[in-house]
Amino acid sequence: MNRFDYVRAGTVAEAVQAFAGAPDARFIAGGTNLVDLMKYDVERPGRLVDITRLPLTGIEERDGGLRLGALATNADVAYDARVRERYPLLANAILAGASAQLRNAASTGGNLLQRTRCYYFYDTATPCNKREPGSGCPAIGGVSRIHAIFGTSEHCIATHPSDMCVALAALEAVVQVAGPAGERSIPFAEFHRLPGDAPERDTNLAPGEIVVAVDLPARDFGQNVTYLKLRDRLSYAFALVSVAAALELDGGTIRTARLALGGVAHKPWRNARAEALLVGKPAERASFQAAADLVVAEAKPQAGNAFKVELARRAIVRGLEQAAAGTPQSITDKRIQ
């Protein structure tokens, strides 16, 4: 771990100011990913701006939805009675990720900003365009079991590892940020980026901007949601493929469909055409299969992760089936419903 200086901010303004003075600064909250990466020498900040004393821990009612303070921990959010009641999709997605210890420390803002788990990104012995722009991407043609099948570029095939963000994408949350240029709102779909030719940039945050809150819209889809996660062991593992599905039904007909995938792209993956295809269709397997086929038609897998295409297809169908049946997947019961 490199040497750095440390600033503990008391207000958002102080945090932004402390950051502005040091171009290689990083904000730190839970630290569960940043400290991890610093020990691997992947992140080498010159300054850490500790934001844990900022008054951003609350979860509040707002415009019929909920505002999640950026410092609310993953556990705070997942076990909040309002979140469990109205946004079981989000609660289940959070509980599908990491471990209890990590969820107790990790913050809402930090979850959005966690970096890929690509083996090569994490290993300074190998090149990586995300870590060292221009050095190359050995994941392409390499060990690519956990890598992306959608939205990849010739420079990067990394995935975003979050479970929570997949649910937030499906719920169309809005990210509130503050920075040197003031405050702004970023729709969730525009928060994370695809790698393109700048894989070093994970998000569209401007330098020095800080996440202050995540707003959950009023539309909550009730119980017609599911978060389905498939991984290499039954807990404490990142998703190979995950699906956040949410439906609004009118009898047996789909009125609105949301579908976001995790573990398959540089950001939570949505496909507007597939979601549109479902609207007005009967909530049954054939409809779900058609949507799934449409989604995976765009996949560009590697040899090592070709299985994810079929896995994603099947997971989408199952996820939508569960959402339609109103049986949100229980994280504790490892039997997938």
Binding site: Y119, Y120, D123, A125, T126, P138, G141, G142, V143
Partner: peptide, 8 residues
Amino acid sequence: DTRLGRFM
């Protein structure tokens, strides 16, 4: 990774 000879 058999190109790098490294367990990834």
